[in-house]
Protein backbone atom coordinates (compact mmCIF):
# COMPACT_ATOMS: atom_id res chain seq x y z
CA UNK A 1 0.00 0.00 0.00
CA UNK A 2 1.25 3.38 -0.92
CA UNK A 3 1.52 5.78 1.88
CA UNK A 4 0.36 8.55 -0.34
CA UNK A 5 -2.96 6.94 -0.99
CA UNK A 6 -2.56 6.58 -4.75
CA UNK A 7 -3.56 3.03 -4.51
CA UNK A 8 -1.39 0.12 -5.32
CA UNK A 9 2.03 1.00 -6.64
CA UNK A 10 4.88 -0.91 -8.19
CA UNK A 11 7.15 -3.10 -6.05
CA UNK A 12 10.47 -4.92 -6.28
CA UNK A 13 10.99 -8.34 -4.84
CA UNK A 14 14.15 -10.43 -4.55
CA UNK A 15 13.77 -14.20 -4.46
CA UNK A 16 16.73 -16.49 -4.04
CA UNK A 17 16.92 -19.97 -5.40
CA UNK A 18 17.74 -22.61 -2.77
CA UNK A 19 21.50 -22.58 -2.12
CA UNK A 20 23.63 -25.44 -3.42
CA UNK A 21 24.11 -26.66 0.14
CA UNK A 22 20.39 -26.73 0.71
CA UNK A 23 21.03 -25.34 4.20
CA UNK A 24 19.33 -22.42 5.80
CA UNK A 25 20.15 -20.59 8.91
CA UNK A 26 17.71 -19.39 11.47
CA UNK A 27 18.38 -15.80 12.31
CA UNK A 28 16.67 -13.99 15.11
CA UNK A 29 16.97 -10.42 16.15
CA UNK A 30 20.53 -9.30 15.82
CA UNK A 31 22.23 -9.98 19.10
CA UNK A 32 23.96 -6.66 19.08
CA UNK A 33 20.98 -4.34 19.08
CA UNK A 34 20.82 -3.87 22.77
CA UNK A 35 24.50 -3.66 23.28
CA UNK A 36 25.17 -0.46 21.34
CA UNK A 37 23.32 2.80 21.67
CA UNK A 38 24.13 4.26 18.35
CA UNK A 39 23.64 0.96 16.71
CA UNK A 40 23.60 0.06 13.10
CA UNK A 41 21.11 1.61 10.70
CA UNK A 42 17.99 -0.44 10.81
CA UNK A 43 17.85 -2.85 7.99
CA UNK A 44 14.84 -2.82 5.81
CA UNK A 45 13.98 -6.37 6.31
CA UNK A 46 15.17 -6.75 9.89
CA UNK A 47 12.45 -8.12 12.02
CA UNK A 48 12.40 -9.74 15.39
CA UNK A 49 10.99 -12.90 13.96
CA UNK A 50 13.12 -15.83 13.11
CA UNK A 51 14.00 -15.79 9.48
CA UNK A 52 15.48 -18.48 7.41
CA UNK A 53 18.49 -17.34 5.48
CA UNK A 54 20.17 -19.52 2.86
CA UNK A 55 23.69 -20.58 3.59
CA UNK A 56 26.40 -20.39 0.92
CA UNK A 57 29.97 -21.48 1.02
CA UNK A 58 32.64 -19.05 -0.20
CA UNK A 59 32.43 -20.20 -3.80
CA UNK A 60 28.77 -20.97 -4.19
CA UNK A 61 26.88 -19.17 -6.96
CA UNK A 62 24.06 -17.00 -5.67
CA UNK A 63 21.10 -17.30 -7.95
CA UNK A 64 17.63 -15.94 -7.86
CA UNK A 65 15.03 -13.75 -9.43
CA UNK A 66 14.18 -10.11 -9.21
CA UNK A 67 10.48 -9.53 -9.77
CA UNK A 68 8.96 -6.20 -10.60
CA UNK A 69 5.29 -6.07 -9.87
CA UNK A 70 3.10 -3.49 -11.50
CA UNK A 71 -0.52 -2.94 -10.76
CA UNK A 72 -2.77 -3.76 -13.68
CA UNK A 73 -2.82 -1.02 -16.28
CA UNK A 74 -0.09 1.09 -14.91
CA UNK A 75 3.20 1.99 -16.44
CA UNK A 76 6.47 2.77 -14.88
CA UNK A 77 9.23 5.04 -16.11
CA UNK A 78 12.64 4.38 -14.70
CA UNK A 79 16.29 5.31 -15.07
CA UNK A 80 17.54 1.75 -14.89
CA UNK A 81 17.41 -1.31 -12.61
CA UNK A 82 20.55 -2.75 -10.97
CA UNK A 83 21.27 -5.48 -8.43
CA UNK A 84 24.29 -5.25 -6.13
CA UNK A 85 25.77 -8.01 -3.99
CA UNK A 86 27.57 -6.49 -1.05
CA UNK A 87 29.90 -8.02 1.53
CA UNK A 88 30.27 -5.63 4.40
CA UNK A 89 31.95 -5.32 7.77
CA UNK A 90 30.03 -3.17 10.20
CA UNK A 91 31.73 -1.80 13.23
CA UNK A 92 29.68 -0.54 16.20
CA UNK A 93 32.37 0.64 18.49
CA UNK A 94 33.56 4.19 18.74
CA UNK A 95 32.05 6.05 15.82
CA UNK A 96 31.65 2.94 13.95
CA UNK A 97 31.98 2.50 10.29
CA UNK A 98 30.97 0.40 7.40
CA UNK A 99 33.37 -1.18 5.08
CA UNK A 100 32.34 -3.04 2.01
CA UNK A 101 34.92 -5.53 1.14
CA UNK A 102 32.97 -6.87 -1.78
CA UNK A 103 30.56 -5.11 -4.07
CA UNK A 104 29.36 -6.50 -7.32
CA UNK A 105 26.82 -4.57 -9.44
CA UNK A 106 24.73 -5.99 -12.19
CA UNK A 107 22.63 -3.84 -14.58
CA UNK A 108 19.45 -5.87 -15.11
CA UNK A 109 17.48 -3.40 -17.19
CA UNK A 110 18.34 -0.26 -19.11
CA UNK A 111 16.36 2.98 -18.43
CA UNK A 112 12.93 2.98 -20.05
CA UNK A 113 9.27 2.40 -19.41
CA UNK A 114 7.79 -0.79 -18.19
CA UNK A 115 4.18 -1.66 -18.78
CA UNK A 116 3.89 -5.03 -17.24
CA UNK A 117 5.18 -6.94 -14.25
CA UNK A 118 8.49 -8.43 -15.13
CA UNK A 119 11.05 -10.94 -13.78
CA UNK A 120 14.81 -10.84 -14.16
CA UNK A 121 16.94 -13.93 -13.47
CA UNK A 122 19.97 -13.28 -11.32
CA UNK A 123 23.24 -15.11 -10.95
CA UNK A 124 26.24 -13.96 -9.01
CA UNK A 125 29.37 -15.98 -9.16
CA UNK A 126 31.98 -14.45 -6.92
CA UNK A 127 34.34 -15.11 -4.08
CA UNK A 128 32.93 -14.60 -0.54
CA UNK A 129 36.09 -14.36 1.55
CA UNK A 130 34.62 -14.15 5.07
CA UNK A 131 31.91 -15.84 7.02
CA UNK A 132 28.81 -14.02 8.05
CA UNK A 133 29.21 -13.01 11.67
CA UNK A 134 27.27 -11.19 14.35
CA UNK A 135 29.48 -10.19 17.15
CA UNK A 136 29.49 -7.73 19.97
CA UNK A 137 31.16 -4.90 18.13
CA UNK A 138 31.42 -6.26 14.70
CA UNK A 139 29.20 -7.75 12.12
CA UNK A 140 29.92 -9.33 8.81
CA UNK A 141 27.00 -9.31 6.41
CA UNK A 142 26.26 -10.34 2.89
CA UNK A 143 23.19 -9.05 1.09
CA UNK A 144 21.69 -8.49 -2.29
CA UNK A 145 20.21 -5.09 -3.06
CA UNK A 146 18.06 -4.31 -6.07
CA UNK A 147 17.48 -0.63 -7.04
CA UNK A 148 15.05 0.83 -9.56
CA UNK A 149 16.02 4.45 -10.12
CA UNK A 150 13.43 7.06 -10.96
CA UNK A 151 13.41 10.69 -11.65
CA UNK A 152 10.77 12.19 -9.54
CA UNK A 153 9.49 9.79 -7.11
CA UNK A 154 11.89 7.90 -4.93
CA UNK A 155 13.76 4.78 -5.98
CA UNK A 156 12.33 1.37 -5.49
CA UNK A 157 14.64 -1.01 -3.58
CA UNK A 158 14.65 -4.56 -2.31
CA UNK A 159 17.22 -6.31 -0.13
CA UNK A 160 17.93 -9.93 0.69
CA UNK A 161 20.33 -11.19 3.33
CA UNK A 162 22.41 -14.27 2.74
CA UNK A 163 24.60 -16.25 5.10
CA UNK A 164 28.10 -17.33 4.23
CA UNK A 165 29.88 -20.13 6.03
CA UNK A 166 33.20 -21.76 5.17
CA UNK A 167 33.67 -25.47 5.58
CA UNK A 168 37.20 -26.39 6.45
CA UNK A 169 38.92 -29.66 6.06
CA UNK A 170 40.03 -31.55 9.07
CA UNK A 171 43.28 -29.90 10.13
CA UNK A 172 46.27 -32.01 9.24
CA UNK A 173 48.28 -30.96 12.19
CA UNK A 174 46.39 -31.08 15.43
CA UNK A 175 48.65 -31.45 18.40
CA UNK A 176 47.55 -31.86 21.94
CA UNK A 177 47.90 -29.06 24.40
CA UNK A 178 50.04 -30.17 27.27
CA UNK A 179 51.44 -27.96 29.92
CA UNK A 180 52.73 -27.92 33.46
CA UNK A 181 51.87 -24.91 35.47
CA UNK A 182 51.99 -24.04 39.12
CA UNK A 183 52.73 -21.73 41.94
CA UNK A 184 55.89 -22.56 43.73
CA UNK A 185 55.32 -24.82 46.72
CA UNK A 186 51.56 -24.33 46.48
CA UNK A 187 50.19 -25.91 43.46
CA UNK A 188 51.60 -27.85 40.63
CA UNK A 189 49.40 -29.26 37.96
CA UNK A 190 49.77 -30.68 34.54
CA UNK A 191 46.96 -30.46 32.09
CA UNK A 192 46.42 -32.00 28.78
CA UNK A 193 43.78 -31.38 26.15
CA UNK A 194 43.79 -33.98 23.46
CA UNK A 195 43.82 -31.47 20.59
CA UNK A 196 44.26 -27.83 19.87
CA UNK A 197 41.75 -27.62 17.06
CA UNK A 198 38.11 -28.48 17.39
CA UNK A 199 35.16 -28.73 15.15
CA UNK A 200 32.23 -26.73 16.37
CA UNK A 201 30.39 -29.84 17.63
CA UNK A 202 33.42 -31.59 19.00
CA UNK A 203 34.07 -32.56 22.59
CA UNK A 204 37.02 -31.17 24.42
CA UNK A 205 38.61 -34.09 26.19
CA UNK A 206 41.46 -33.79 28.57
CA UNK A 207 42.97 -34.55 31.92
CA UNK A 208 44.27 -32.61 34.83
CA UNK A 209 47.02 -34.15 36.92
CA UNK A 210 47.63 -32.77 40.34
CA UNK A 211 51.27 -33.02 41.13
CA UNK A 212 51.23 -30.86 44.21
CA UNK A 213 48.29 -29.46 46.10
CA UNK A 214 48.91 -27.25 49.07
CA UNK A 215 46.02 -24.91 48.64
CA UNK A 216 42.50 -25.75 49.63
CA UNK A 217 40.75 -26.03 46.34
CA UNK A 218 37.01 -25.62 46.40
CA UNK A 219 36.31 -26.40 42.82
CA UNK A 220 37.68 -26.30 39.31
CA UNK A 221 36.00 -25.12 36.14
CA UNK A 222 36.67 -24.85 32.48
CA UNK A 223 35.48 -21.66 30.78
CA UNK A 224 35.06 -21.16 27.05
CA UNK A 225 35.94 -17.59 26.10
CA UNK A 226 35.49 -15.77 22.83
CA UNK A 227 37.61 -12.74 22.17
CA UNK A 228 36.70 -10.28 19.50
CA UNK A 229 39.45 -7.80 18.60
CA UNK A 230 38.48 -4.96 16.32
CA UNK A 231 40.37 -2.00 14.99
CA UNK A 232 44.02 -1.57 14.74
CA UNK A 233 46.87 0.31 16.26
CA UNK A 234 45.75 2.64 19.01
CA UNK A 235 42.12 1.89 18.51
CA UNK A 236 41.89 -1.76 19.30
CA UNK A 237 38.71 -2.86 20.92
CA UNK A 238 38.87 -6.18 22.65
CA UNK A 239 35.70 -7.76 23.79
CA UNK A 240 35.87 -11.04 25.76
CA UNK A 241 32.82 -13.05 26.34
CA UNK A 242 32.65 -16.10 28.61
CA UNK A 243 30.34 -18.44 26.85
CA UNK A 244 30.17 -21.09 29.56
CA UNK A 245 31.63 -21.86 32.95
CA UNK A 246 31.74 -25.60 33.10
CA UNK A 247 32.47 -27.06 36.49
CA UNK A 248 34.82 -29.98 36.12
CA UNK A 249 35.71 -30.75 39.71
CA UNK A 250 34.14 -30.45 43.12
CA UNK A 251 36.34 -30.43 46.17
CA UNK A 252 40.05 -30.70 46.65
CA UNK A 253 42.02 -33.47 45.07
CA UNK A 254 45.11 -34.88 46.65
CA UNK A 255 48.51 -35.28 45.11
CA UNK A 256 48.54 -37.79 42.33
CA UNK A 257 44.89 -37.37 41.48
CA UNK A 258 43.90 -37.19 37.85
CA UNK A 259 40.65 -35.51 36.93
CA UNK A 260 39.02 -36.12 33.59
CA UNK A 261 37.86 -33.23 31.40
CA UNK A 262 35.00 -33.58 28.98
CA UNK A 263 33.22 -30.61 27.55
CA UNK A 264 30.65 -30.87 24.79
CA UNK A 265 31.01 -27.76 22.59
CA UNK A 266 27.51 -28.49 21.40
CA UNK A 267 26.31 -27.73 24.89
CA UNK A 268 27.92 -24.30 24.94
CA UNK A 269 25.16 -21.72 24.91
CA UNK A 270 25.36 -19.01 22.21
CA UNK A 271 26.62 -19.65 18.77
CA UNK A 272 30.11 -20.85 18.20
CA UNK A 273 31.86 -19.81 15.05
CA UNK A 274 35.19 -20.82 13.70
CA UNK A 275 38.22 -18.86 14.75
CA UNK A 276 38.72 -15.82 12.45
CA UNK A 277 42.32 -14.84 12.31
CA UNK A 278 41.90 -11.68 10.29
CA UNK A 279 38.80 -10.35 8.67
CA UNK A 280 39.71 -7.70 6.15
CA UNK A 281 42.27 -6.27 8.50
CA UNK A 282 39.31 -5.07 10.51
CA UNK A 283 38.92 -7.64 13.23
CA UNK A 284 39.77 -11.09 14.52
CA UNK A 285 37.90 -13.63 16.60
CA UNK A 286 39.63 -16.11 18.83
CA UNK A 287 38.53 -18.79 21.26
CA UNK A 288 40.17 -19.78 24.50
CA UNK A 289 39.58 -22.40 27.13
CA UNK A 290 40.37 -21.21 30.58
CA UNK A 291 41.11 -23.62 33.38
CA UNK A 292 40.17 -22.02 36.67
CA UNK A 293 40.89 -23.30 40.17
CA UNK A 294 39.00 -21.62 42.97
CA UNK A 295 40.23 -22.00 46.54
CA UNK A 296 38.28 -21.78 49.73
CA UNK A 297 38.92 -18.09 50.01
CA UNK A 298 37.60 -17.62 46.50
CA UNK A 299 40.98 -16.87 45.05
CA UNK A 300 41.14 -17.93 41.45
CA UNK A 301 44.06 -19.53 39.74
CA UNK A 302 43.74 -19.91 36.02
CA UNK A 303 45.50 -20.81 32.82
CA UNK A 304 44.11 -19.85 29.46
CA UNK A 305 44.83 -21.71 26.26
CA UNK A 306 43.79 -20.77 22.78
CA UNK A 307 41.90 -23.34 20.82
CA UNK A 308 41.17 -23.12 17.15
CA UNK A 309 37.66 -23.79 16.05
CA UNK A 310 36.79 -24.87 12.59
CA UNK A 311 33.65 -25.69 10.75
CA UNK A 312 32.90 -29.18 9.64
CA UNK A 313 29.40 -28.69 8.39
CA UNK A 314 27.12 -25.85 7.56
CA UNK A 315 24.43 -24.88 9.95
Amino acid sequence: MSIFGFGASASLNLTLSPPPSGEFKDIGKPNTVSSTKDGPPPLANDSPEVRKVPIYTGTDKVEGTLSLTLPQGKKLDHLGIKVELIGRVEMFYDRGGVHDFTSLVKEVDAPGTIYDSKEYPLSFDFEKPYESYRGLNVRVRYFLRATLSRNYSGNLTAEKEICVQHITNEPEINNSIKMEVGIEDCLHIEFEYERQKYGLTDVIVGKIFFLLVRIKIKHMELAVIRRESAGSGQNIYNESETLIKYEIMDGAPVRGECIPVRLFLKGVPGELTPTYRNVGNRFSLKYYINLVLVDEEDRRYFKQQEVTLWRKVLG
Partner: peptide, 13 residues
Protein backbone atom coordinates in the same frame (compact mmCIF):
# COMPACT_ATOMS: atom_id res chain seq x y z
CA UNK B 1 33.70 -44.77 37.13
CA UNK B 2 36.07 -42.41 35.37
CA UNK B 3 33.77 -39.43 35.41
CA UNK B 4 32.76 -39.68 39.07
CA UNK B 5 36.35 -38.84 39.88
CA UNK B 6 35.35 -35.26 39.31
CA UNK B 7 33.81 -35.14 42.75
CA UNK B 8 36.67 -35.01 45.19
CA UNK B 9 34.82 -33.60 48.14
CA UNK B 10 34.74 -36.57 50.55
CA UNK B 11 31.14 -36.65 51.71
CA UNK B 12 29.68 -35.72 48.33
CA UNK B 13 32.00 -38.10 46.55
Amino acid sequence: IEMVKCVQYPTRG
